[in-house]
Design a protein around this nucleic acid. Sequence first.
DNA 1: CGCACTACTCCGTGATACTGTGTAGTGGTA
DNA 2: TACCACTACACAGTATCACGGAGTAGTGCG
Lengths: 108, 108
Amino acid sequence: MDDLTEMLKGTLEGCVLEIISGEETYGYAITRRLNELGFTDVVEGTVYTILLRLEKNGLVQVTKKPSGMGPPRKFYALNDAGREERERFWVKWQYLSSRIDKLKGGGR
Amino acid sequence: MDDLTEMLKGTLEGCVLEIISGEETYGYAITRRLNELGFTDVVEGTVYTILLRLEKNGLVQVTKKPSGMGPPRKFYALNDAGREERERFWVKWQYLSSRIDKLKGGGR
DNA sequence: CGCACTACTCCGTGATACTGTGTAGTGGTA
DNA sequence: TACCACTACACAGTATCACGGAGTAGTGCG
């Protein structure tokens, strides 16, 4: 798939929120998960900027744990604000995708 | 619907391509059409920057016509490159939306 | 000891939608 | 005439976001 970066703006953060909501996890693993899910070109640098942003915006709770497989990991879990933001994201996604699909189908 | 601007990045241009592909039209009318379609916050300034970009990238053919209802209008129509770009846009949209929906549904 | 893999940080870049302001043409109305 | 509303386009500046690249560290394997 050729370049999706522009299309991912605003949605990738929501995807990360969704992944975190499933289980407490960390940056490196989130990147691998996104790659598995078809977001093949998403790299670590991108995910870490999103995670720092989530932390700065108070949407996640962060816990540092030793790894055994390398440096310590920063585990992320959604707090209440994070769960609300995740809800808002899905509402927006639903809204947008329905409008786009309507436009595709003739826009009537 | 609260702010969709980030989510629109990369998709709004495709929407404009789709609208133009339906009929030769002009900036002001495209803005109204987008508003009707549910992209309520999209304003003229945004549409004109997209149209200028499409023209600069050689995806449209432009024809100036007098209006009778105000200043002359610049009508836009897709050329071959524009039709190809439109195709690529829908392929990308299909790819992205299917991945996101899969993630939403549990990501398996 | 070097290399691969894991794991995080940070600075800069490019693309995009948006904001605000300005210009201009037409028509209605007081 | 003077004013306003609606139509129609242009452009400079801003914010946000994903990404690239480089660097730092920890573990284990040959």
